[in-house]
Simulated assay, not measured.
Amino acid sequence: MSEIKADILTKVIKKRHSATHKGDYGRVLLIGGNENYGGAIIMATEGALNTGAGLVAVATHSLNLTALHARDPEAMYLDWRDHNLASLIGKVDVVVCGPGLGTGKFAKQILQLIGEYTTSKQTLVLDANALDILAQERQLLPKHAGTIVLTPHQMEWQRLSGIKIPYQTDSANLAAFNELIDQQKAILVLKSNQTHVYDNQGRVFVNPTGNPGMATGGMGDTLAGIIGGFTAQFGGELDSVLAAVYLHSLAGDVLAQNNYVVKPTSLSELLSQLMQQYASK
């Protein structure tokens, strides 16, 4: 097991050059936010926007349009029942699915659609309700994405893997992860007070940053969006995911110096400033 260190940020985050445009910094599609949980997909969206994804689209329930555009006018909106969603899935670099998605029939149809239209050139980040659905129906796990990133907290991982929280050791987690995703490039981000990151080559990384002020609703949704923003810009490799995990907690630690509770939306606001500090040539 290796510890994630701050130098992962300078390794991954690159200084932006003049002769570039928004298309050079990745296209992210976030899918989620039913009629009760619009905030989840908005917080994920802010994670992607504030880490610099060039183009961000959000497919969500129509009830969320006003709130989304009031907070984040940079994001393109699509009603998730629109037939154009299928074609949009195939056109982006990264799909983030799950925050506030729900677990009903329509949510399962969304996962089926993703499975049909994602390609080997894309990264797929599955979070929250998407993982709850997979725990019930593993056959809905998309098979064609270039890289799949799973981002469960420990209870979601218990439902998905069958391993109870006290027994979630590195060896047990790796065995369950490899059984779940066979012969495909994949990364598991197991969120806890010390998040562990696994790949299906058997490597294990632990994140030393983070604090209890971050134990609040929406923190995981924000991380999913940050991972989406990083993999869209810097590629769907393990280093991009490690950097996203580290930056997320680093921002939380900076805010915790003067705040008892770290709000996910406040954390997102700090991301761009921290990235500028660590951007390499």
Rank of each mutant, 00 (worst) to 15 (best):
L124P: 03
Q139N: 15
K105G: 10
A70H: 11
Q158A: 14
V261N: 12
D132K: 14
L174E: 07
A48H: 04
D221V: 06
L113N: 05
N50R: 09
P73F: 03
G229R: 01
G38C: 06
T265Y: 13
Y246S: 09
G236I: 00
I163L: 10
A130C: 06
A53R: 00
G229M: 00
Y198S: 00
T119S: 11
H153P: 02
L134I: 08
R71M: 08
I4M: 07
A53Y: 00
E3G: 13
H144S: 12
G202F: 11
C97P: 05
V254W: 08
T20A: 14
V189W: 06
S249V: 06
Q194G: 14
D132M: 12
Q257C: 11
L65Q: 11
K15T: 11
A53W: 00
I89K: 03
L68W: 01
L30E: 03
T20P: 08
L29V: 08
V94Q: 00
Q184D: 12
Y77N: 06
G225H: 01
Q257L: 10
T118N: 04
V56I: 08
N193Q: 12
T60V: 08
G33H: 03
Y25W: 13
I114E: 03
Q158W: 13
V95R: 00
N178Q: 15
L250N: 01
Q273K: 10
L134E: 04
Q122R: 05
S192E: 10
D24M: 11
G98D: 07
T119I: 12
L238S: 05
F234V: 02
Q201M: 13
N173Q: 12
K22M: 07
L247F: 05
A279I: 06
N259M: 14
K11M: 12
Y37G: 04
L242K: 01
K164R: 15
I8V: 14
D132F: 12
N200H: 08
G23D: 10
P212V: 07
T151P: 02
I114M: 06
L131N: 02
Y260P: 05
